[in-house]
Amino acid sequence: MAEHDLPQRSTPRSYWALSVLPHLVLFGALMALWEGLSIINVIDSIMVPRPSEIVSAIWRLYVTERIIYPHFVVTFTEAVTGFAIGATIAVVLAVASSLSDVFQRYVSPYAIVLNVTPGIALTPIIIAWFGYGMGSKIALAAVICFFPIYVNALTGLLQTDEDREDLFRSLGGTKVQVFFKLRVPSSLPMVFAGMKIGLTTALIGAVVAEFAQATEGVGVLMGRFSFQLQMAASIATLLSMTAIGLLLFYAMEFLDNRIVFWGRENRMARVSRARAKAWQRIMHK
């Protein structure tokens, strides 16, 4: 079992030496081992390309030939647009469901059907409906990112703290006030949790639809390289998907951090200081 690590204050320099350097050393050693095993033919270098080949493929794709960028932009746009559409519908339906029991009762069976159906199964049909272009990718992304966002937002909106609601009522708060001043803020952590899952799923939707039928996007590029057995280039393309995933995830994390500041101690301290300063300014005017 893990011993309790006591918080240790360390200078940036020793932080670097203690926590980053060992990772780099390990990573380097693993790569060297891989390269070496490949050179002495223990690893088949056609099926599992060498790290050096992957690096050179990355260099080619990203720096010299620069062919990946348009595809990157296409996939990124598809995922984000699909996410925006799916998330908007999900949040609207979740709000309506949280406000009306009847609405929730009649929507939930369809939401459950949508949840248990693998959204990916719709890929060919959505392509038939929306064509070979970006439209079908956006649609699939929207369909499969809908459910996690809907369910998280609804859970967040419905988790009511009776005492707090009683407090609002005792103060003469209206239903609208309860909704905007109590329910919405307290649901935000759950909403963001759903959005983070939804973003990842939206990216999957875009990429899978590209595998099935498309002319542009990293999914297309990846399929093409794989079929030509250009494994190094294929892995380099895969890494660009990871980059999109990380980019989207951290963008959402950033928003989460800004908006749900009360969940994080360091953010809370900063917001507290900022508000104190603003207050002082008002007082001095």
């Binding site: 060992p22 794989s226 892995i235 895969l238 990871t242 995933g245």
Partner: peptide, 25 residues
């Protein structure tokens, strides 16, 4: 501790996207 960075990278990658690679290999 040493696996964590790889897990983060793997988590951000759409895992299903590895499909063409696996089929090729």
């Amino acid at each position: 501790r040493y696996l964590q960075p790889y897990v983060i990278v793997l988590e951000a990658t759409p895992r299903i996207a590895v499909a063409p690679l696996l089929i090729a290999a």
